[in-house]
Structures are given as C-alpha cells and as structure tokens.
Simulated scan of single mutants.
Amino acid sequence: MSVTEENKNVVLAFFGAVGSGGDPTALLADDLAYWIAGKPEQFPLAGSHSKEGFYQVMSVIGANMPNGVDVKINNIVAEGDQVVVETEVHGVSATGKAYDNKVVFVFTVRDGKLVSVREYLDTIHANEVLAENVA
C-alpha cells in the first residue's frame, strides 16, 4: 500500500472514530495544529487550536449537538501527505435547530498521525447552531 493510501486510511479512521463517538487520540500527533475558518470574534470556534484545543472544540460541538452529527463523505482526494475531504454534516442542536453544512477538511498526515487539520465551512450557519452556547 502506498503512503498516499495509508494517509487516506488514517483520515477515514479519524472520521470513523469521531463519527462513532470514539476516541481519535491515537490518530492525532501531539503537536496537532487544528484550524477552523472564520474570525474568532464572530465565530468563537474559529482560529488555530492545539491538540487540547481540538478536544475543547469537540466538547462544545458535543454539548450543542447531543445526538451527534452525521458526516457524509462526498469526495476524498489524497496525494502524498495531503488528504482533502468534502463532506456534508447534518444534525439537530440541543435547542432544535437544524445543522446542515458543507465542510471541506484539508489534512496533513505524517507517520500515521494527523499533524494538521484545516476546516472550511459556512461559519455563519455554524455559529448560529454549533456555537450558540459559547461565550
């Protein structure tokens, strides 16, 4: 199996772990750089996060989406250490708001671990639903 295919499998395993409520820790590098599109003053989940920050973001999303989210992978493209995934994410917030967003993730994988994740999404919609209880 090529490195590109191995890296693609790491990313698919990440989505599998996160989607099932599992723990993706084994797939995350200690120095993970996780970035979410947007301006933090307008969308509090936006900006750069460490591995610890990634878990804080997941905690906020989990609190606001108590029944979880459904992530449908529409496309995955991998070359070398880069893996790009186009998704549709659906769910219902704790307050009953529908969450329907198209999200593109750009992953960098090294030695079987995610070292960088960049997430591009409709930040206005995400702010209205996912960050409604973030100060």
Rank of each mutant, 00 (worst) to 15 (best):
A13V: 07
V115R: 12
D100T: 14
T95S: 15
Y55M: 09
G47Y: 03
G112R: 00
P66A: 00
F105W: 05
L130Y: 00
Y120T: 13
V10Y: 03
V10Q: 00
D100E: 14
K113Y: 04
N9M: 08
H125L: 14
G47A: 04
A46K: 01
E132Q: 14
K51S: 02
D23K: 08
Y99R: 02
F54E: 12
G96F: 05
L28P: 10
V3T: 15
P24D: 04
D31W: 03
Y120H: 13
V84Y: 09
A33M: 10
V77G: 05
I36L: 14
V104S: 08
G62F: 01
G21S: 08
N75R: 15
I76N: 04
V85Y: 08
G91T: 10
M58R: 12
G62D: 02
D81H: 09
Q56P: 05
L114A: 09
N133C: 05
M65C: 05
I76D: 03
R110S: 06
N133Y: 13
A78Q: 04
F105R: 02
M65Q: 09
T25A: 13
G62P: 02
N67T: 14
E128Q: 15
Q82I: 15
D70I: 11
N74E: 11
T87D: 06
K8I: 07
P66L: 01
N64V: 07
A33N: 11
A37E: 14
F107V: 01
G96D: 04
F105G: 03
A26L: 05
N67G: 11
V85M: 09
N9L: 10
Q82P: 04
A135S: 12
L121P: 13
M58G: 13
A78V: 08
M65I: 08
V104Q: 02
G91E: 03
L27H: 07
E6L: 09
G62L: 01
V10C: 03
L114V: 11
D30V: 09
G38A: 07
G112E: 00
F105H: 10
I36N: 12
L27N: 04
N74L: 12
A78F: 03
P24A: 03
I61E: 12
G80E: 06
F107Y: 03
V117H: 06
A46F: 00
E5W: 01
A135Q: 13
D31V: 10
D23W: 08
E88R: 14
A131L: 05
S2H: 05
A78Y: 06
S116K: 15
A33C: 10
G112A: 00
A63G: 12
L28M: 09
A63R: 14
S48P: 11
